[in-house]
Simulated assay, not measured.
Amino acid sequence: MKYQSKKKALILLADGTIFYGKSVGNAEGTAFGEVCFNTGMTGYQEIFTDPSYFGQLMVMTNAHIGNYGANEDEVESDTVKIAGLICKNFSYDYSRPDADGSLLDFLNKNNLLAISDVDTRALVSYIRDHGAMNAVISTRVDEIDTLKAELKKVPSMEGLELASKVSAKEPYYYGQENATFRIAALDIGIKKNILRNLAARDAYIKVFPYDTPFSELEAWNPHGYFISNGPGDPEPLKGVIETARQIIAQDKPLFGICLGHQIIALANGVSTYKMFNGHRGINHPVINLKTGKGEITSQNHGFAINREETESHPDLEITHMHLNDHTVAGIRMKNKNVFSVQYHPEASPGPHDATYLFDQFFEMIRAHADVNVSV
Rank of each mutant, 00 (worst) to 15 (best):
Q4H: 11
L12G: 01
A14Q: 13
G16S: 09
I18N: 06
G29E: 00
M41R: 13
E46M: 12
Y53P: 02
G55L: 04
L57Q: 04
I65S: 03
G69F: 01
N71K: 15
E76A: 08
S77D: 12
A83S: 12
I86C: 02
S95H: 13
S95K: 12
D98L: 11
A99V: 08
N110W: 02
N110D: 11
I115C: 05
I115R: 00
R121Q: 15
A122L: 11
D129G: 09
V136A: 03
E150G: 03
K152I: 10
V154S: 02
E158Y: 04
S164N: 15
V166W: 00
Y173R: 12
Q176S: 12
Q176I: 09
N178V: 07
T180F: 01
A185S: 08
I190E: 04
I194Y: 00
L195P: 00
R196L: 15
A199G: 07
A200I: 04
I205Q: 04
K206Q: 14
V207L: 09
F208R: 07
Y210W: 13
T212D: 10
S215T: 15
E216K: 09
L217D: 01
N221R: 14
F226V: 10
F226C: 09
I227K: 03
D233G: 08
P234L: 05
P234N: 10
L237S: 07
K238G: 09
K238F: 13
T243G: 08
I248A: 03
Q250R: 15
F255A: 01
G256L: 01
Q262V: 02
I263D: 00
I264D: 02
G269I: 08
S271P: 05
N277Y: 06
I282Y: 03
N283E: 14
H284L: 10
V286Y: 03
K290N: 09
G294S: 11
E295T: 05
T297A: 06
G302L: 05
E308S: 15
E311H: 08
E311G: 07
H313I: 03
I318F: 07
I318C: 08
T319D: 02
V328S: 02
G330H: 03
R332H: 06
K334N: 12
N335K: 11
N337F: 10
A347D: 01
P351D: 12
Y356L: 11
F358H: 06
D359V: 06
Q360C: 13
E363D: 14
M364N: 05
I365F: 08
R366Y: 12
A367S: 14
H368I: 05
